[in-house]
Design a binder for these strands. Structure first.
Lengths: 218, 218
DNA sequence: CATATAATTTAGACTAACCTAAAATATCCA
DNA sequence: TGGATATTTTAGGTTAGTCTAAATTATATG
């Protein structure tokens, strides 16, 4: 059994691994965990003792298979609970992260599997992130950054890259929720801003920054 | 904000208060918390500093209004989660306690209230225990111990006094779940055992110990 | 009512997870 | 390639919650 804190470190290391090549540095972990590098060193040693990470002094860490499996199961729980909160309890997509952060540590395989079934085995969470299956497999998707699409392309909003509340609330205000059908009507070379049109005919201007954080299924 | 551990102490003290008169002793708390008396003394001092209990050395403790309110909210969460697990995720009534013990510490008033609504504002949990409302009010019930009923009385199984898995599983085996209609057909003076008859005509023999732990709504 | 026993508290120590400051190592660049 | 700088680790300390053993207070009984 791993502590709440150990689980959070594993999850953090997993997410850093997704974003960068090579070993994960102590400072990078300290940053996302909101602690100091010295604390990370302590914890990393403990995780190494438990064979959850490979660690050599000054070389950073990498999750072992065992550590990765645990991290994936935590992500599975987090995303399933987010589905529950949004689909069953009518939370908005910008309200669920902190609660799911707590719920993800509830310890019962049966609970997770029953929840999965209750929700109809969803493949993606309310932000479009894939939900790993019971045995840790992520569904493939065909999502592309809105910024990379060409004029005339059509699709549906399928996910976000930035999960911050301010970004999610901005999309909400523009009525760009998951599943919204859009077409790319205009690309501005100069600042890379775009204009999209929704199914109900609204034209929406989006900056490069925004377009880069919206994923579209085409 | 109170820690997970502080919440468990408050809940333990609340439950002991339900069962006994006067102040709650250090040893009694140590027993239900599975710790030593010395640890309880430390925690009780902390809770007293936070004005959650009244405490005087060697005199035991009593919850303040503030402490009691927190305890009741934890019980509310515990029982609502038990309803969720049984009614929505098809857990059996003997499988939910440990999971609810974790879920009860999830910190979000909105979550609890939305869950309450999602479940249809249940008044009793899967063991027949009353669920306090948002403002801490418990529903009254008209439940009587099966042992105290008279021959010919009819009613429905509405709750249990013993919440142990062995007891719940025993009732399960006898197909005496919550809501089962029964009539008391025979009382044996000698050993206080009883015979009840279910709606579908099964006669079930129950010892004094069992009859004393079954609550019936008449 | 005095003393034996039981309950409670204090004292001092442990672990997990964190911290700061200092030491050790790695990296970068002139 | 040799400093300068940045990163990481070590050393030593803190807090929450626990423990054991000893000291204190309450209670019970002859």
């Amino acid at each position: 059994m791993n502590s709440y804190t150990e689980e959070n470190y594993l999850k953090a290391i997993y997410k850093l691994t997704e974003q960068s090549e090579g070993n994960i540095t102590t400072n990078a972990i300290a940053e996302v965990m909101n602690t100091k590098a010295a604390s990370v060193t302590d914890m990393v040693k403990k995780l190494a003792d438990k064979k959850l990470v490979n660690y050599a002094k000054y070389q950073g860490v990498r999750l072992t298979k065992k550590g990765e499996d645990i991290a994936i199961q935590i992500i599975r729980k987090h995303r399933l609970w987010e589905c529950f909160l949004v689909n069953k309890l009518n939370f908005k997509w910008d309200e669920v992260h902190d609660i799911a952060e707590e719920l993800e540590h509830i310890n019962s395989t049966t609970l997770v599997d029953r929840l999965d079934e209750f929700l109809g085995f969803p493949k993606f969470d309310p932000h479009g992130d894939p939900i790993p299956s019971k045995n840790g497999i992520f569904s493939a998707n065909n999502f592309y950054k809105l910024l990379k699409l060409n004029e005339g392309d059509i699709g549906k909003v399928a996910g976000v890259c930035d999960h911050s509340n301010t970004f999610l609330q901005y999309l909400e205000k523009q009525k760009l929720g998951l599943g919204t059908s859009i077409s790319l009507t205009e690309k501005n070379e100069y600042d890379q801003s775009v204009v999209i049109t929704t199914a109900d005919g609204r034209a929406i201007f989006l900056s490069k920054e925004v377009a880069n954080n919206i994923l579209v299924a085409i």
